[in-house]
Amino acid sequence: MRVTQGCFSFLPDLTDEQITRQVQYCLEKGWAVNIEFTDDPHPRNSFWEMWGLPMFDLRDAAGVMMELAQCRKVYGNSYIRMSAFDNSHGWESVRLSFIVNRPKDEPGFRLERHEMAGRNIRYTTKSYAVDRPEGGRYG
């Protein structure tokens, strides 16, 4: 099951050229574009790991793309996303993020039902991928 989160995730995967253009758009807005990766695809997982150092003061997308190429070399079978951070007063948060790399095989999620007192049921979504330990989740 294809994970859809962040911008453009209902579109076909972006090509490198499209990613470059999106990153350039962010840089021209003055946002700092950083690369994050994870192998826990749960939609509520907000703690993705950052690749390298945060990248401030870039002018051209080529720098980000260089880092992305290196990140893909190491974590090519994980989720990688770009996050554009806006440091201007009043925002000080991520303005845009989109997935730029995903595992070859995405096993999807299952719904777990917890039976509570009085025949109540609570639901949890769980990714099949996290059944395996970190690092070995996508083969």
Partner: peptide, 14 residues
């Protein structure tokens, strides 16, 4: 390495 790369990234396109 990170230091040099940071400078290189800043200079990209120029």
């Amino acid at each position: 390495a990170p230091k040099t790369k940071e400078v290189l990234k800043k200079a990209m396109g120029g």
